[in-house]
Design a protein around this nucleic acid. Structure first.
Lengths: 208, 208, 208, 208
DNA sequence: TATGAATGAGTATTCATTCAT
DNA sequence: CATGAATGAATACTCATTCAT
């Protein structure tokens, strides 16, 4: 269930690091405290990660990989565009609900900007998977025209915004008005209204 | 022009801090380096700010105040709901374009979560201003129903997402497809299509 | 009454310094805090004292001068040896009771060792006055033989010891058993027992 | 021999600290200088002591423990009261002679007042040991009546006074007139004169 | 003369990283 | 492979002192 499953030393470290990073910030977390929580010696951490930054990146990468696994399933790849998008959205909500610390760490705290090549690579993987879905949806006339990556950044941003808002209130994401959230997000993409089973033939959301 | 205008020592410090924070992270910026860039002695910084954190908060607060001034103008307060929202959006784009470092610092790096009471206060001010506009728009049937603050968080999030995307590409925000951005954002809010002067009678984006 | 009487700026500074030194240690007292308590600007302190150390020394010197005035009175100089010694002792008790902060500062905290020429000079003055009394008493057979300064150091030390003890208990000096203190101190000096008017011919120093 | 014997890192630090504290004051000693003299890295000091203050306290505590070992021997505990007191006195002289820096640090510079619980605890131990001896002596009619702790504070104070005097002269303690010192100190306690083997029935404390 | 804002050298303390066991 | 004591560069912060007004 946990994104960092196997109970190898490596994943114990990764998991302890994640917990502490989201509790006390990346910069505010001391390596020895990670070692302690992972029940591992300080030196051991350096057998697995060359330095603190790369440990941070590893957490980020592992988290994004988990997100990819959660979001880009076979179901998604095989479903028709709108269905696929709905699947993705629900998976996203589920992921952020199940792993709030991880999600917060990845989105509120660690910007890809500070990270290295590996992080860029997972992000590319995630993005290309999503771009495929969006492009297909655009071709099907289900999503508005425009740079797919920009649209993805926007919907994702709107989701992150909502998550941050929930965090501000000290509430789990699921206490927000999820149906409205979804409607708003899909409107952003230009998916015609009508719920999951909405007739895809409907008019574009704003046929300017 | 700069949000930290007057050339008092205090604002020189604030400005130097902002620059360095957005160049090298809050945690990665050493106080002496701020002093040097502000052309001020280290000790002087401590005459104005009790500690580094509160300097960070002061930058954040000053930035958000500038944003408030830019976004919640008299024009906005007096315009009809949709017009008001368009004004805000354009002001937002202009602000993020003119002060990219400041915007990045506030949105990508310093979360209200790490900040104190003053930060909370400016945010409350910003939010209540925006909530007023959104609520009015909802009453006018121009914006979808739902928790105004959640909607605000989402549109704002989508804007931040787009900004981050532009940053990733190394481009200024204005190189993105702004019209699509706007259309997407307003669709998120449920504002009926039709551009600024669009007939409000037009079909709602998801007249379910 | 206060050793630092006249309300000149200089003595306000001296007094404020004394208070803070005995509250928070010499090293723990910041010059600005002295300025504040003396209701004087920081710079003003430097018009009267070249630096912090010399301010410390000045407090010490002023305090010792006050002690000299209290202890080496004309009465003392004119009284017969034992009477003189009793006068001194009572004056010492009164001084330490009336100015506990000053006494504590001079004896528990500032050692002549760290101080300069002026301090050495007042101490010489105090010592020579006391040596005169002790020597006379020795010649009169009222005080035991031995280096007068060593005897003085010892009685004074015993008094300081008692004062420290009272301070430890959080009590004023006068809550101790003063008669026993006096008897012990005079036995140290070898003054035959018998109270102020005791016949010097008496026997055991305190067989009562 | 040295109170801080074993050549563990901890005691090297303790010893270096003691030396520097007594040379340059607690406040005047920089941590790096301690590290250098102890031939240890700065950070290492913080593995053993949480902060400078607690290092100061540790030196104090270790010193007082050494003093306890030196002064409250089995011999003392088993000897008859007066003998016990003589033993203690000679042990005190020996201790202050052998470890002048340590003694000066503990008595001239670091007051229990600035110290914490551990310091209070050793002092309690020392005091209770001495009180036992004094009380026994009082019951045996060998020491004057009165609060034992006050009497202890006074004799100890007189010893410290003499030590300070020797220090002022730049002489070792042993260059003072030790027999007179002892006679004076024991007279303070009210121990009848007559030397170690003196018949306790004797009269005046020092009518010689 | 008095002021107090400005200074910057100096300090305690932390923490990523190494390496002998 | 794992350990964790040792390291020391780096950092935030203080405070005695100066000097333009």
């Amino acid at each position: 269930m946990t994104p960092f499953s196997s109970h190898s030393r490596r994943s114990r470290i990764l998991f302890a690091a994640l917990e502490l990073f989201s509790e006390k910030t990346f910069g505010g977390t001391a390596i020895p405290s990670i070692a302690e929580r992972a029940d591992v010696a300080v030196g051991t951490i350096y057998r697995y990660f060359p330095n603190k930054e790369s440990l941070g990146e590893a957490v980020f990468v592992a988290g994004k990989q988990a997100l990819i696994r959660a979001v880009l399933t076979d179901e998604v790849r095989e479903a028709p565009p709108e269905q696929a998008l709905r699947h993705i959205w629900h998976a996203l909500v589920a992921f952020a609900t199940d792993h709030p610390a991880l999600f917060a760490f990845m989105e509120f705290q660690m910007h890809a900007g500070y990270l290295g090549a590996e992080a860029a690579a997972v992000l590319r993987e995630l993005h290309s998977g999503l771009v495929a879905v969006i492009s297909a949806a655009q071709h099907a006339g289900v999503v508005r025209e425009g740079d797919p990556l920009m649209l993805i950044s926007m919907v994702f941003g709107s989701f992150v915004g909502a998550t941050k808002y929930a965090a501000t209130l000290g509430l789990p994401l699921t206490d927000l008005d999820l149906p409205t959230m979804e409607r708003a997000a899909f409107a952003l993409l230009g998916v015609p209204a009508g719920g999951t089973s909405g007739s895809p033939a409907a008019q574009s959301s704003e046929s300017d």
